[in-house]
């Protein structure tokens, strides 16, 4: 027998997950698939389930002078339809399909930490930070430090991811392209996200190629200095380590990621 709980406040949820190890259930779009056994039979949950989707305080998008603050339970649809900058809205609008976007949450996609998660390349490029709360206190850490690997994060069992902080920057252009096996309702086999302000400031991330999203601040700094696309490409090539799997090939992922970055930046430089 597995117990389930429906807290309505963060404090209540923190108490529950402090007492014992629980499955934290936000939108459940990944958990329900992972725990299924047979249609009509129970899901194979081995720990108590805490349904957090009743915590209304985590469902808002707020902003300060310096940051957008996204509650962990904001849905992907809400992100896509929000007043956030286009370079945030558009990627969220391309995740999965409408039914999933209506229920899947911003926090869930991060905590799940799938290597093909589409929000992570965006948030990583934007220097987002996440707040983790527990009954013992709270900490806010960069997203890059939060994710350790495929499905691995530094979240402790008694911690709940509550907010995502996205710094406001003066980016004036972006490129986002996600490639799947078809045109819609599909997981990424490679994605590239570039945000920049002319060529004074730039962030580049590559998703779904390596087990973790690729970003190199060092390469970005160098590129701002020398505007050398060949050097940038050389730098990325050295850190790409794609795999052959059911969805694509190593060669395709790496070549296309490089093609996309190169083609876009060549266009930017030509326009300068």
């Amino acid at each position: 027998m597995i117990n389930s709980y429906r807290p309505t406040t963060v404090e209540e949820a923190l108490q529950l997950i402090h007492q014992k190890r629980c499955h934290i259930f936000a939108g459940g779009t990944d958990l329900m698939i992972r725990k299924r056994q047979w249609q009509g039979a129970e899901r194979k949950f081995t720990q108590p389930v805490v349904f957090i989707n009743g915590i209304d305080s985590l469902k808002n998008i707020e902003e300060t002078d310096t940051h957008y603050i996204i509650g962990a339970l904001v849905t992907q649809t809400e992100m896509a339809e929000s007043h956030l900058p286009e370079y945030i809205r558009v990627p969220y609008a391309q995740m999965s399909h409408p039914a999933i976007r209506n229920i899947a949450t911003v926090g869930g996609n991060i905590v799940n930490a799938a290597s093909v998660a589409d929000s992570i390349p965006i948030l990583l490029a934007l220097d987002a930070e996440v707040t983790l709360q527990s009954v013992e206190g709270e900490r806010t850490i960069p997203l890059g430090a939060f994710i350790l690997g495929k499905y691995k994060t530094v979240r402790k069992d008694n911690e709940l991811l509550t907010y995502i902080h996205i710094p406001k920057k003066n980016y004036n252009a972006y490129y986002y392209k996600k490639i799947g096996q078809r045109k819609a309702s599909i997981l990424s086999k490679v994605s590239v996200f570039i945000v920049h302000h002319k060529l004074d400031e730039i962030a580049i991330t590559i998703g779904a190629v390596n087990p973790m999203v690729i970003r190199s601040v060092q390469l970005e700094k160098q590129f701002i200095k020398d505007h050398s696309i060949p050097d940038l490409i050389q730098g990325f090539k050295a850190i790409l380590s794609g795999v052959n799997d059911k969805r694509s090939t190593k060669d395709y992922r790496e070549t296309v990621a490089i093609n996309m970055i190169k083609t876009y930046l060549e266009g930017v430089i030509n326009e300068l």
Binding site: G180, Q181, R182, K183, A184, I186, L187, R247
Partner: peptide
Amino acid sequence: QHHSFSNYVIPTTED
């Protein structure tokens, strides 16, 4: 190998 909707892809209306 391809035995789920996530990796065996049939056309959507977009295709």
